[in-house]
Computed example of a mutant assay.
Amino acid sequence: MAQIQEKSTPCKGGKRRAKRTQTHLDMTPMVDLAFLLLTFFMLTTTFNKLNLMQLQMPIPGGENPVKGENALTVMLGEKDKIHYYFGYAGDNPEVATTDFSANGIRKVLSSGRVKKNDKLVVLIKATEASRYKNLVDILDEVRITGTRRYALADLQTDDKELLTANIGG
Rank of each mutant, 00 (worst) to 15 (best):
E69D: 15
E69K: 15
R106W: 05
G87Y: 00
Y88P: 07
G90P: 00
L55K: 04
K79C: 07
E63W: 09
F47D: 01
R113F: 08
Q54I: 08
P65G: 05
L50Y: 06
Y85S: 06
K67W: 12
D80Y: 03
K119I: 03
K81Y: 13
A96W: 07
Y85A: 06
K107N: 10
Y85K: 10
K81L: 15
T98V: 13
L52Q: 10
I59D: 11
I82N: 04
N51S: 12
S101R: 12
V114R: 09
T73E: 05
G87K: 00
I82H: 01
H83D: 07
N103L: 03
K115R: 14
S110C: 10
L50E: 11
I59W: 12
Y88M: 09
P60C: 02
L55P: 02
A96C: 10
M75C: 02
G87P: 10
S111K: 08
L109I: 06
I82Q: 01
M75G: 03
V66E: 07
G87T: 08
S101W: 14
N70C: 08
V74S: 06
S101Q: 14
N64E: 11
N117R: 12
L72K: 04
E94P: 01
I105R: 00
S111A: 13
N51I: 12
L109V: 02
H83A: 15
F86P: 02
G90T: 14
K79E: 13
K107A: 14
L52R: 11
A102F: 12
P58V: 01
K67M: 10
I105M: 05
G112S: 15
E78Y: 09
Q56A: 15
A71G: 02
I105T: 03
E69C: 11
G77D: 02
R113Q: 10
S101G: 14
G87I: 06
T98F: 12
R113V: 05
F86E: 05
A89I: 03
K81H: 15
G62M: 04
T97G: 00
K67Q: 13
F47T: 12
G104H: 05
M57G: 07
G112I: 02
A96N: 15
S110G: 13
I82W: 01
E78H: 12
K115V: 12
R106E: 05
Y88W: 11
A89M: 00
M53D: 12
V95K: 05
V66W: 02
I82L: 02
G90S: 15
E63T: 11
G62F: 03
D91Y: 07
F47M: 12
R106N: 09
V95E: 03
N70G: 08
N117I: 07
G112A: 12
N64L: 14
A89G: 03
E69N: 13
